[in-house]
Structure formats: structure tokens, C-alpha cells
Write a protein that binds this DNA or RNA. Structure first.
Lengths: 219, 219
DNA sequence: AACATTTTTTAGACTAACCTAAATATTCTT
DNA sequence: AAGAATATTTAGGTTAGTCTAAAAAATGTT
């Protein structure tokens, strides 16, 4: 139906809308997709004629309803394939992204629904991100960043903002995994580094890392 | 590494070499790939500069060692994915080809080896075709066409030459499946239609169908 | 408000993979 | 072996997606 390039742009715009709100800028897309702003402009024009984005010169874009549906279908495929890779093929969570980037473009509704069933309709992918169902609906759990936690409170690690290989490898090394219960012992006012405690150990994480960890509150 | 188009040409040339012997002609490739002869010529030149085929103007092509290895890797992926679709996702054997055509281009050696292990290293795909191992080796079983069988002899249906949807649907309807024991009752000299018997029923198949069924001899 | 900076768009070019139409080789027929 | 038929290649064009460089619009600064 749509080319891989088109799907990648839609997915990218969808992600940027989630992060920064609607009205995504050309340069932002360009840097995320690692291409030039002029290429982005070209593509936005094309997506616009296909009624996938609402685009006005110099004003940024946002997805149309059609565009959002399409983006969600790609996201669904990406996250289901990640589940498959981790649960069935024993990949580690930091190894699956690049492969899922390819698999997400395979076109077959039947395939993806059968895959969904095979995996028993998972609600989140290995990084804690919610998986849209076939109607595009998903469960967005209330989460807070580690930095916004009260000192002394605890939470379950439910997701990561940055699911790049290096960051996930860092978490592996520090023995932090999704589902771990984490208690915030102290936040250093000077550099916003955070002293945390898990069931098995204590450690200090930088502000940067703390920004990328989402917790679900727990008493 | 190589584009999907390049991989498709290599796979196509490989298949034609198997069927018709080496030195595959431009038109043959064009008709199989459903494109124009001039496009084939363009691609053959490109594949030639990459040392994947040995090409001399007006003389047809054959795969180089490098080309054959690459083709076999694609074939391996295609057939493993077909196994996955049938065994794990409950697709029927006539539904998997088009999806496998897409999946065969996913690039990750680790993925394909893990998939192979997950499927317990299958030796043939759902159509009875042998699956190359990671070194490109496969078990080619001795088979004969139904038409070449002696009257009164039996064989196990081990493969089909034409694995297109319509043909496989026909076999489904006639209740013929891989692994079935088939006895050749009679071959009509006039039109080469064949009277056969399975464990459960008797039927007459046209010469055309008989040409497309491979049996492994059995006493 | 005027100038500088940044962002975005336009103009024009490139590559991969395809196409049509015309030219050239090869093969077939007699 | 010459002409006809067929097969293949060449020449030149198209589209998708990218690029660079230049132009234009928006934004920031004083």
C-alpha cells in the first residue's frame, strides 16, 4: 500500500507528536530520520497529497486521521515482531530494534493478526511500550519519570524513553530490567543524579539515565 | 548487502538453472520475473560487475560461486519462513508464498539461524522443497514425476513443481497432500492423463497435473 | 524596525529499477 | 546462404527517494 519510506516518515511523525506535541517541524523529522530537511519537505508534500498529513509550508505537519491509523499499524507490527524476537527466538531486548525496523514493513494483515494470536495478544513490547490492537487502541499506563518521584517512594520500571542499543546495554550491565521494583533513595540537588535501590542492589544513576526511565507508582 | 531486486534476480536465475540447466536466457528471466527483457539486460550487467553472475552479451548467464551462495541464502530464508508460517502460525501451504517473498529479504544472519533452531532445523519446506543449511547444503531427494512411474507402482508425494496458489488449492480440493502414498493405476496413452489411488480414494489427474507432482519411489 | 541567524523550501542533479522503441545479433527456414 | 523471425541489447525516458546549493520565510536580537 505505502512504501517503506512513507511508512517510516509516518512512524517518525507519530513518535515526535507523542514526544513534543502536534505540529512537528521539518528539521526535527530530518534529524530523527537522519536525512536532509529538503528530503523531508519533498516527502511531506507527497504525504500531504495522499491525505496522510496536514501540511502547510513553513508551519510543520501533523498526522491526519488516516495518517495516524497507518502509523499505528506500523507501530503495532514493529512491537509485535519485537515480542516475537524476544519471546520466541531468545533475542535480548537490546538486539531487536534493527530487525523489527525491517519486519515492520511486511505487508499482510492476516500475518500480523496470526502473529498477535501466536504471542497471546501481548499488551506491551519488550521495552514496555504499549502495542496497539488491530483497531489502533492500546493501554497507555500512567507512568512518571524517576526524576519526578518523591524521595523514598517506589515504582515498577515499566518503560524506557530511549530504546537504543547502548542505553539498553547499560541497563543490562547495571542489572536493571522491566518489571523491577525501584525505590528512590535520594536525588542529588547539585547534578540531579539519583540514588536508587532495587530488590538486589543499590546504585547511583546520572540525571541523563533517570530522564529515560519510566516508573509506575506503587505504594 | 544486496537490494531486493538483485536478490530476486539471483533467486530466479538459480531456479531456472535448476530447471533448464545453466546458461539461462534473458527472455526466460524476463517472463519469470514478469518484467521486460531490457530491464533484465540492465540488471545482468549490474550483477556481472558485482561478480554474482557470468554474463556475456547474447549468450545468457549463469551464477558465479558468489552468486549461487547468495541465491541459496535467499532460498534458505524463503523456505524457513514458509515453515514458520505453516507450523507456527497455522497458515495453509497455499497461502504462504507471497508473504515469504517479502520475508526472504529481511537481513540478519542471527535471525535466520535462530529461526532455523526454533523450527528444529527442518529439512524441507511445506511444499517438499529442500532447505539449504547455513553453508548452502541441502538434501535433494531422488524423485520422479508421476508420468515417469511404472504402472502399478507406488510412491510418496514429496514435492510439487508448481507451488502457485491455484495449483495447491486444486490439490487441497482433491485431498492430496505431501506425504501421501500414491499408486499409479493407469496412464491413458491418448492424453497422458493418470488414474491414481491414495489410501482413501481414487481419481484421475490430467497430464498437466501429473507433470507437477513428484514422488519418491517406494516398494 | 532593521539586521542576523535559523529554518524551510525550491531548483536542479543523481541513482536504482523500471519502461518503450529502435537497433543489432542470433537462429530458423527454405 | 539469404531473408524472416526471434532474441537481445542499446538509447533514451520515468519515478521514488535522496542530495547540494541557493532562495525565501520565519524568528531572534539589539
Amino acid at each position: 500500500m505505502y512504501s517503506q519510506a512513507e511508512e517510516n516518515y509516518l512512524k517518525c511523525i507519530y513518535a515526535l507528536e507523542m514526544e513534543h506535541g502536534e505540529e512537528v517541524s521539518t528539521n526535527l523529522i530530518a534529524s530523527k530520520i537522519k536525512t536532509k530537511a529538503s528530503s523531508v519537505t519533498d516527502m511531506l508534500k507527497k504525504l500531504s497529497t495522499k491525505d496522510l498529513v496536514a501540511y502547510k509550508k513553513y508551519q510543520g505537519v501533523k498526522l491526519t486521521e488516516r495518517g495516524r491509523e497507518t502509523a499505528l499499524r506500523v507501530v503495532r507490527k514493529h512491537r509485535l515482531w519485537e515480542c516475537f524476537l524476544v519471546q520466541k527466538l531468545d533475542f535480548k531486548w537490546d538486539e531487536v530494534h534493527e530487525i523489527a525496523e525491517q519486519l515492520e514493513h511486511i505487508e499482510s494483515d492476516l500475518l500480523i493478526d496470526k502473529l498477535d494470536a501466536f504471542l497471546r495478544f501481548p499488551k506491551t513490547d519488550p521495552h514496555g511500550d504499549p502495542i496497539p490492537d488491530k483497531h489502533g487502541r492500546m493501554i497507555i499506563s500512567e507512568t512518571v519519570k524517576v526524576l519526578d518521584m518523591k524521595i523514598g517512594s517506589s515504582g515498577i520500571l515499566t518503560g524506557v524513553r530511549d530504546s537504543s542499543g547502548p542505553f539498553l546495554k547499560y541497563l543490562n550491565k547495571k542489572n536493571l530490567a522491566l518489571g523491577d521494583k525501584i525505590k528512590v533513595i535520594d536525588i542529588e540537588p547539585y547534578d540531579q543524579s539519583v540514588h536508587i535501590e532495587t530488590r538486589t542492589h543499590r546504585l547511583v544513576i546520572s540525571n541523563n539515565v533517570a530522564e529515560n526511565l519510566y516508573l509506575r507508582n506503587v505504594k
